[in-house]
């Protein structure tokens, strides 16, 4: 269980996250939604210990440090691979440092996405870079797989392929936290949605709960975000000066 309690993060007086408390068990596929700058990336960076924060983040009751950090992996649109070594060299590096590295999964995904094994990462296309970033995160042998906008620059077919592979390979003890703008695309397969706005959690719901309330994820998100459907027509009226 990954537990976040009363997380507070400020950047030079500006509040990036406030009152964030979450419990994240193993075996969930979670969508993390919010506008740009809402705090999605900051939340992940806090979990990984990249930034200082106040509050408490624990994994199975322990603080996150070198002893248990291997159970958390991270794929980011900023890319965290090494630009000047090949895919195979990455595999060897990961294998050396992460004892639970899943070589079989790595090779399988490399084949599936048909990525070059001996070219340095710098020469990959953006789409290939994203795929490789995700492959590493999935192969590390982590129980918690954090993905921050992993598909910026991939086309839809590519993404759909990825979703299906993801669903097919995940083990029951693996949790994926997927931060994305592509709500409708992932709404079919996530099991839980966490909504974040201006640094606060404004919604946290499981798909089961939504099923019971007979709501769809998209309608729930629009509702929670106080999305005003008449916004567009109003704006058009204002712009064109038309009155009813």
């Amino acid at each position: 269980m990954l537990r976040i309690e009363n997380l507070l993060k400020t950047y030079g007086g500006k509040t990036a996250l406030k009152d964030v408390s979450l419990e994240i068990p193993r075996g969930e596929i979670i969508g993390l939604f919010g506008e740009n700058g809402a705090g999605k990336t900051t939340l992940m960076k806090c979990i990984l210990g990249f930034v200082r924060y106040s509050g408490e983040i624990t994994l199975d009751g322990d603080c996150i440090n070198t002893k248990n950090i291997a159970s958390i992996s991270y794929a980011t649109c900023e890319h965290s691979f090494f630009p000047d070594i090949s895919a195979t060299a990455h595999r060897d590096f990961y294998e050396e440092h992460f004892p639970a590295f899943n070589r079989r999964r790595f090779e399988g995904l490399m084949d599936f996405f048909d990525l070059p094994r001996h070219k340095v990462l710098r020469t990959f296309s953006t789409g290939q870079k994203n795929q490789f970033e995700v492959i590493l995160a999935l192969s590390q042998g982590a129980d918690y797989i954090l993905m921050d906008e992993p598909f910026a620059g991939n086309d839809i077919f590519n993404r759909e392929d990825f979703y299906k592979v993801l669903l097919g390979i995940l083990e029951p003890h693996e949790t994926v936290i997927l931060s994305t703008h592509l709500i409708e695309e992932v709404s079919g397969f996530i099991g839980r949605a966490i909504l974040i706005r201006k640094g606060r959690i404004i919604g946290d719901v499981t798909v089961d709960e939504l099923d019971e309330q007979q709501k769809t994820l998209v309608s729930y998100i629009k509702e929670t975000y106080d999305y005003r459907g008449d916004r567009v027509s109003k704006a058009l009226n204002d712009i064109t000066g038309e009155e009813e």
Partner: peptide, 8 residues
């Protein structure tokens, strides 16, 4: 789950 693209 993979075939339909839905949560396991």
């Amino acid at each position: 789950s993979a075939l339909l693209g839905v949560n396991p």
